[in-house]
Write a protein that binds this DNA or RNA. Structure first.
Lengths: 306, 306
DNA sequence: TTGTAGGCGTTATCAC
DNA sequence: GTGATAACGCCTACAA
């Protein structure tokens, strides 16, 4: 021990993991998405997730390794390589798509992974999600109670799995408040500010425009507010806007954004702990995943319609 | 080869790195900072950096591993462990502090690393930085030309190395435009929106308040705008605000933020390529690092004073 | 308690 | 070229 101290000895990680079959590293892969040739930047929400995961991981001296790869052919190759070369002990997935091949592959390989979000097979116990549908329902109720009757829906990309779940919440909320869903007030966004702007201009160009817009993330909501203001309208009185995520900036926008809060930082921590249990083949106490309620944070971007 | 294909064989990463002494992984460590017990979230700028690094790293199938650790004692232990256990091939440093012990240690160990930013010993060739001082000088010139004479300075934390460099730019700009620096119009921020708010309220409470505020990042600028608006004042006419970074949200704030653009994504790519050269002991063509000019993006948060 | 052999899965070397 | 063999540095098990 004294010798270790004086020589500053540390076991070589590679040798150790060759022997123990553990790397003390978990992985996360960002699927790069391009729209019209433009790379969509990573959602700020992911940064919170990283913060949460890593701040928990340090306690077990585990690192989080990151890759970015365009979705598609090469993406699955990367997953395959990481799994078969045992470069990491487990994976954290997010932004699942419909019929996501990654889940099927990892299940088939019995490779430890957790999901931020849910997936088709509800029986898994390896996910943590926010109940987006319930959140959206609450948001619609809030808007309806303010007097809004024409509420537009700025959707996530249709390819994402959560899109279906969230849509159910919107439908439920609208039905509950006896409001009609106008197909002209639905727009598919891509989570970027730009698409929030485009969608909002589209909505406001309708013969019968909405008085409120629900946006499926805060970035699109920022774009929506910008588009509203560009037309000389006032956010919160002429058109109300609701976001989703409650990223740190949401309270500093003008006006401050009414949005659904997800405790991303804590979710990151929980996902990490869950993954470690899976890696260690320890029993998981939560059955069928874990569903958190998002909280509607009412700020000044919503108000009574004129 | 046929057998490899049919069996789906992939070399084991650990065995390979034990033999080759390469891990095909580079590292990045976030120093967690707490202020009054609150964890300061990572700056959104870092996300762009990660995006840039990883989108380049994928070409050489290299991963980026992340750790988060409170600055201080344990931090150096982590660096030591990573270096001596050869868990990574190289490191990317950012947000250097005055007399940063990390640089000294890595140099002493002859461990490959690159810096986003600069450090005291200018002779190194392992850094890429944006010339913040020149940018701030340009921002001050812009404000002075609009007619501002009382310009406040929302500083980065004093412990950071770049603070000194940026301050020089401010002084230079003020002198150049024959403006006086009022010690009452200087405030030390911590890069968070909150500190932008606090600093701005402090400025506006002065007997002789400023007509313009230069903020050393966009997040603080958002906080500043919020504080100005909370007092019923108008950003851009009553008080002008300039930021630094040009994060994606800067153009979507209200009003859109005048700020200094740093091509973070490209810097991330360049840092990665530089680090790989260092790891391979290849010759570096740039001598004494690389300094990029930030670009002043003029939007609506700056205007003529009343 | 201390010491030693075998194995983890590669890469590199050296005969052939 | 092809095939055996020695590192790479740790962990585990078994012997002394």
């Amino acid at each position: 021990m004294a010798a270790i101290e004086t020589l500053g000895y540390h076991p070589t990680a590679a040798a150790r993991s060759l022997s123990t079959q553990r790397t003390n590293t978990i992985g996360m892969i960002r699927s790069e998405i391009r729209l019209q040739g433009n790379l969509i930047e990573t959602d700020p929400m992911v940064l919170d997730l990283i913060d949460g995961i890593t701040s928990e991981a340090i306690n077990s001296s585990t690192g989080l390794t990151f890759w970015a790869i365009p979705a598609g052919q090469r993406e699955m190759e990367l997953y395959r390589r990481l799994v078969t070369s045992r470069q990491i002990d487990g994976l954290i997935l997010f932004a699942l798509r419909e019929k996501d091949p990654r889940v099927a592959y990892l299940q088939e390989q019995d490779f430890p992974f957790v999901i931020f979000g849910r997936f088709e097979s509800k029986e898994g116990d390896n996910w943590i999600d926010v109940d987006g549908a319930a959140g959206i329902e609450a948001a619609v109720r809030h808007l309806a109670e303010l007097g809004h009757r024409r509420i537009a829906y700025l959707s996530p990309p249709y390819e994402q799995y959560l899109t279906r779940l969230r849509w159910q919440g919107f439908v439920r909320g609208m039905e509950e408040m006896n409001l009609l869903i106008d197909p002209a007030l639905i727009y598919e966004g891509d989570f970027s500010e730009k698409s929030g702007q485009l969608g909002t201009h589209y909505f406001l160009d309708q013969p019968n425009p909405p008085t409120a817009i629900f946006c499926n993330n805060d970035r699109m909501a920022f774009g929506a507010m910008r588009a509203i203001q560009a037309r000389g309208l006032t956010v919160g009185s002429d058109v109300s806007v609701v976001g989703f995520d409650d990223i740190p900036l949401a309270r500093y926008s003008n006006p401050p954004l009414t949005t659904l809060n997800q405790p991303i930082h804590d979710i990151g921590k929980a996902l990490f702990n869950l993954l470690i249990k899976l890696i260690n083949r320890e029993p998981i106490d939560l059955l069928g995943g874990k569903l958190l309620k998002p909280e509607l944070v009412i700020r000044q971007s919503t108000g009574r319609p004129r």
